[in-house]
Simulated scan of single mutants.
Amino acid sequence: MRIFLQQRPEAGEQPKFYQIVLQQDLLGGWILLREWGQPGLRTSSKREVFLERKDALDALSKARDAQLKKGFQVMFSQGADDPRRV
């Protein structure tokens, strides 16, 4: 599952992005990867591992909701019918 969010840039600035990716690892756990920054500039990332899918989905929802509150908009989602309802 992948959700790509973007924030509308101020005049003269590049847009900011926030990407959340959830995937299952080879041992049956779940990896939540978050990446954020500005295209072409320095980016940051954070990786979390969960044993249960439900816990990983809860963390994904929490991360997505936090970014929506900051003014980010969902630009692309893959693997979910509605990116606002995971």
Results as ranks from 00 to 15, higher is better:
4 F>R: 12
20 I>P: 01
21 V>G: 04
54 K>S: 12
25 D>E: 09
86 V>S: 10
55 D>I: 05
76 F>N: 06
7 Q>T: 03
20 I>G: 01
30 W>N: 08
10 E>V: 07
45 S>R: 06
86 V>L: 15
38 Q>R: 10
75 M>F: 05
17 F>C: 01
22 L>F: 02
23 Q>H: 02
69 K>M: 12
42 R>I: 04
10 E>F: 12
68 L>C: 11
37 G>A: 02
38 Q>T: 08
10 E>G: 09
21 V>T: 14
29 G>F: 02
23 Q>I: 01
51 L>S: 15
44 S>E: 15
20 I>E: 01
35 E>G: 15
6 Q>A: 11
53 R>I: 02
26 L>C: 04
62 K>F: 13
43 T>C: 01
76 F>D: 07
79 G>M: 00
25 D>W: 01
46 K>P: 00
63 A>M: 07
83 P>T: 05
10 E>A: 13
24 Q>V: 03
85 R>H: 12
3 I>Q: 06
70 K>L: 15
2 R>H: 07
67 Q>S: 06
36 W>A: 05
70 K>Y: 04
19 Q>G: 04
62 K>H: 14
52 E>Y: 09
30 W>Y: 15
85 R>Q: 12
46 K>T: 10
26 L>K: 09
42 R>Q: 05
69 K>W: 06
10 E>K: 13
68 L>Y: 08
28 G>A: 01
56 A>K: 08
13 E>Y: 04
66 A>Y: 07
70 K>H: 08
31 I>Y: 03
1 M>H: 04
70 K>N: 10
12 G>I: 00
19 Q>N: 11
41 L>T: 07
15 P>V: 10
68 L>H: 09
84 R>S: 02
68 L>R: 11
84 R>D: 03
31 I>C: 06
30 W>F: 15
57 L>I: 00
67 Q>F: 09
68 L>N: 09
24 Q>M: 10
10 E>R: 14
25 D>S: 13
62 K>W: 12
82 D>C: 07
64 R>S: 08
11 A>K: 13
11 A>V: 11
77 S>L: 14
53 R>D: 02
55 D>T: 11
52 E>H: 13
35 E>T: 15
66 A>G: 12
33 L>Q: 08
54 K>W: 04
4 F>L: 14
12 G>Y: 05
29 G>S: 14
78 Q>I: 04
36 W>Y: 11
26 L>T: 13
19 Q>F: 02
61 S>G: 15
15 P>S: 05
85 R>N: 13
83 P>G: 10
5 L>Q: 03
59 A>S: 15
41 L>M: 09
62 K>S: 14
39 P>N: 00
70 K>I: 05
74 V>N: 06
73 Q>I: 09
13 E>C: 06
84 R>E: 06
7 Q>A: 12
22 L>K: 02
18 Y>G: 05
27 L>I: 14
55 D>R: 14
82 D>F: 05
39 P>E: 03
2 R>F: 05
45 S>W: 02
52 E>T: 09
59 A>G: 11
18 Y>Q: 04
44 S>P: 01
21 V>K: 09
20 I>V: 12
13 E>S: 07
52 E>Q: 15
